[in-house]
Design a protein around this nucleic acid. Structure first.
Lengths: 225, 225
DNA sequence: GGCGACGCTGAGGATTCGCTGAAGCCGACT
DNA sequence: AGTCGGCTTCAGCGAATCCTCAGCGTCGCC
């Protein structure tokens, strides 16, 4: 197990190093975000322990940069403040867990082990079918390179189809996943949304991602049509 | 994405509802554990947000009951106390993640998304007889490599035969499986559909998968004819 | 060989299904 | 108040599908 520690305070960094090495991990230490990114590019670590407050490039930025270059190494984020916003922002930029300073070494170890155990079952962030891509976090949909504007309902319908791409999903099932309990309209509502989705993601590209399966519902083509 | 919130405090429940709906989720709220279990039985939710402290049936019990009835919907547990024991107990009874009150909405959202992301799409198995293959999920039927277009009724009839391949199934049984109870036509309808099935899955391939068992109904050959 | 019951078959009218444009409604924003 | 965008309902249309029916073939039994 090889761990990268990105931390600028030397005392903290060294105590992490010795503690983790004592537990049998191989440890590299980077002193700022830039160096951290460089290390991470060179070596395939099993996990990264990342301080939030760093010189040059901060923790969020490191995290976002790694994910952007398609590196899904588990990240344990260290934050000095107790702000809930920090935590959320960390998870949203792609950290897998966070720890608020001060913390005991035992806790860190436990969280780290949990991360390593989980590894592999994570990601990818976006739902994909061929060149059709949907990101639940940012609410963005693209076909190849072009960004497509969807309303919130359209988005939800496409999402449920995409989660079960390749399978036929009945209108009733779609309604159950997209609308809540007190919706009492008929299945025609799904037809209407499928229509407007097709106008946006199929027709302009001369493709057919959403296929009608008569009597059974709709199916999203696994290859995007 | 449809979410069930099980929470007795109305202010909390309503703020969760409005917040989640604002993010494009469909939300149902249950006020106690009993109601929560009932809702979960009725609808196939994408995730359940479950308060620990509940009237009637508490969070642990709800969680355990769901898992016991083989419902593996991802569960995000909300706990008021900060005790690590709670956390551990929650994970043990089958919660997928936990969150300690008070928390910020952004954090909840991030965790929820992480849960939904992790949930893999499971693929049901296809029914097979020789080189004849029927996939209930995609509504696809193939003979060897060639895809065969069936109407909804034809599909259902073939499905009931395939489920009991090797056995003779009477027309009456087929009618009971395929048509609803207010169907009052005669058994000839089955003959008609068997005929059109044979045209599509037997004749083009010069095989005979569907065998007539005079006086007893039809039998699907286990080897596909 | 003849008879009756059972199964096969083709055709066409009735029905359902999905598609589509338009319009009413509501909340948000100006 | 007015406008805009999104959500939902509705009704008409065309096509795919469903079901009935009537005539014919075949099997089993006497």
């Amino acid at each position: 197990m090889r761990i990268l520690v990105v931390e600028d305070e030397t005392t903290m960094a060294e105590s992490l190093r010795s503690g983790l090495e004592g537990e049998g991990f191989a440890v590299d230490v980077a002193a700022d975000g830039e160096e951290g990114l460089w290390f991470a590019a060179e070596v395939d670590y099993d996990a990264i322990i990342l301080d939030l407050m760093l010189p040059k490039v901060n923790g969020f930025q490191v995290c976002a940069a790694l994910r952007a270059r398609n590196d899904w190494t588990p990240i344990l984020m260290l934050t000095a403040k107790d702000g809930h916003l920090d935590e959320a922002e960390g998870l949203d930029t792609g950290a897998d867990d966070y720890l608020t300073k001060p913390f005991s070494f035992v806790v860190l170890l436990a969280r780290l082990r949990a991360l390593l155990r989980r590894k592999g079952s994570e990601r990818p962030v976006a739902l994909v079918a061929g060149d059709l891509e949907l990101d639940p976090a940012t609410h963005e949909v693209r076909r190849g390179n072009t960004l497509i504007e969807l309303t919130s309902r359209e988005f939800s319908v496409l999402e449920t189809l995409l989660v079960r791409k390749g399978q036929a999903v009945s209108k009733q099932e779609i309604i159950e996943h997209v609308w809540d309990f007190d919706f009492d309209g008929g299945p025609n509502i799904v037809e209407v949304y499928v229509r407007s989705l097709r106008k946006k993601i199929d027709e302009p590209f001369d493709r057919q991602a959403i296929v009608t399966v008569r009597g059974a519902g709709y199916r999203l083509d696994e290859n995007g049509g």
